[in-house]
Design a protein around this nucleic acid. Sequence first.
DNA 1: ACCTGAACACCGTTCAAGT
DNA 2: ACCTGAACACCGTTCAAGT
Lengths: 205, 205
Amino acid sequence: MTLTRDQVEDTALAILTRFGLADLSMRRLARELDVQVGALYWHVKNKQELLVGVAARLLNGLDAGNQPGCSAQGDAPSTGGPTRGAPQDQASGRAAVAGLATGIRAALVNVPDSAEVIQVAQSLQPGSLAPLNRLRAMLAAAGIENPTWAQHLVMNHVLGSIAAAQESARLAAVDPTAAAVPLGDDAFDWGLRVILDGLFGDAAA
Amino acid sequence: MTLTRDQVEDTALAILTRFGLADLSMRRLARELDVQVGALYWHVKNKQELLVGVAARLLNGLDAGNQPGCSAQGDAPSTGGPTRGAPQDQASGRAAVAGLATGIRAALVNVPDSAEVIQVAQSLQPGSLAPLNRLRAMLAAAGIENPTWAQHLVMNHVLGSIAAAQESARLAAVDPTAAAVPLGDDAFDWGLRVILDGLFGDAAA
DNA sequence: ACCTGAACACCGTTCAAGT
DNA sequence: ACCTGAACACCGTTCAAGT
């Protein structure tokens, strides 16, 4: 079988998940695929472009209507046109944003250095990650005046929290004495609530 | 003259400021100092420890009471004990936090990749950056229930905004056609206002 | 105490040449 | 079209040996 771009991205994601970004080198990737390094550059322009693909894979499960918190939807949701504002937009808009932000975090928190990978993709090719576009659309639909700024505000919290949690876990693994502050799921939830309070004016606290 | 740790950190900061983190290698640093690479490792344990020193230098101007927004203070501020809550703590606490966050951003925004450097220092040696401790102390004094979480919430916005602004500037320098969204000072101010609204309950909007 | 010289084990990227 | 072999120009870190 000949090498495929999908195989390259799959193996890259596997290395990232098991060993982190420091071990995800083009040479290590080639070794894992039983191939010479140069072969990778026929399927991928460079390492950054590869990371954009890996970032997309990380958030792949968030594309359809399967974010946690909403039990079942996405097949035939509404009867009218989708462009009209629903009746309870203030509260349900906030809940939808919270659900998607929590889902993005859940998809990334167990993959080492995933926050860095997403940030590279976001800066190198903005707009290429569908769930982040959906987040912005949700914020716009909920009446937020500047949805792009709000998207970045929420994502900075999501990615910053993930990086901090993973770093504190990395420290605890090396030196179990300095337990410090957990900075886990509850810290994320608290911060998300603060941001949504500021965005939506405390309506659904 | 013999080499000094201060010289090493000074030169490292100069390279970072002029050329960014990608150009701040130990070998480039040694070249700039007219010295062999190994010489650096007598003054510094490794590159990460060096970056912690560089991070401290980046925030050095924020140590005393000279943050912008508060015209003059820090000499003999109050008559009573410092542990008692002042009368207008809700509003002045919020203003103090906003001033320090804005000051931290101002100290970093013109240094390429400064957000990454601060994050490395913060994760490798938490508590070593005095202005971040002052930020947490301010939040505690203002009555925020979990000042550590709030400190990270604010700092994730500060550092995330800086990184996004520098990346969008880097893109605009290479490809001036895709102007995209500015993501500059006003985006930062707006996000900070949202966070403070959520933290302080809309009191001083 | 402080630094040199030289090595070790890596990187990302390119490219002629093969098939 | 797809891959090998080999090179180019780098990395961070260590360490005997010099002074």
